[in-house]
Amino acid sequence: MGDKTAARYAIIEADQVMFYYGDNIALSNISIDITQGQHVVILGANGSGKSTIAKHFNALLTPTKGDILVKKMNTKDANNTWEIRKSVGMVFQNPENQIIGATVEDDIIFGMENIGLSTEEIAKRLEQVIDMLQLQAIRKKEPYQLSGGQKQRVAIAGILAMEPDVIIFDEATSMLDPEGRNEVLKAIAALINEHSATIIHITHDIEEAIVADYVLIMSAGMLVTEGTPEQIFTYQGNLEAYGLQLPFSMQFYKLFLDAKADSSTVNYDTIPMNIDELVDALCKYSLKM
C-alpha cells in the first residue's frame, strides 16, 4: 500500500480544536494529523463528537477555537472552501439523503459539474468510476430502485469522480443491512489496496477499526486515546466507558483466560485480532474437548 518509507506529508492537521454548539462543548482540544495514504478510523459511541470533527475536515463546520488545515489551507478562510471541498470528499450515513441525481449516472455527474469539469473529462471519469465500483448494471437506474449498499457505492463513485485527496466515510455503514455493509467495506478495502487512497472512517463498529493503520477513540467530545489497532486493543483500559466493546475475538479470549482453571499457563500478551487468530491462540492450549 504505497511506499511507507517515503516522506509522508500531512493532508489534514487539526490543532487544539474546540467547537461549541450553543452552550454545548461538542469538541474539546482535538489535535489530529492525517497523513497521505493512511487508513484512519475514528471510533466512538453516538454523541462522542466523531462526526462533528469529521465535518471540520471539509469545512462544513469551522472551529470555535483552534485551527484545521487541509493541505496547509485554513478552513476558517472562506476563500479556501472551494479547494478544500475538492480535496476532501465525504460519504454520509443516510444513503437516501445524499443522492441528488435522477439516475445513478446523473448523481455521479453532479459533483463533477459543480467543480466545472469539461464534458470530455466528465465522460471519461464517469466510465472510470463506474468500472471501479462495478456499477455497470445499474448505471441507468433511479435511486428508488437501488438497495442501501448500492446507493452508498453510487455516493462513493460520485466522490471519487472528483478525485479528492482524502475520502471520509461518516458512519457510512450504520444504516445498512449486512449485505450492504459488506459491499461498502469491500469498496473501501479496494480503494486502499488498489488505489492507495487516504481514508478516514468514522464508525462505532470495532470490527471495522481492526484493519486500520491508526485508530482514534473519541468520547464526550474528547480524543481519549489513539494508536495502532495493536496498541489500542489491549486488555487494560476500559473501552466500555467510551460506549465501545472489544472485538469479539479479544472479548472471547479474555473470558477464556478468566475461565481457565489452571491459571499458570495463561498468556495475556496474545491479542487475537480476528477469529482466525483467536483459533490459533486457543490451539496453543491443550484443550481436551
Binding site: 469479539f248 472471547f252 473470558l255 477464556f256 478468566d258 475461565a259 482453571a261 484443550l287 474437548m289
Partner: peptide
Amino acid sequence: SEAFARYLGGV
C-alpha cells in the same frame, strides 16, 4: 460467550 469460554477453559 461466557458459557462457551467456561467450557473451553475446562471449568
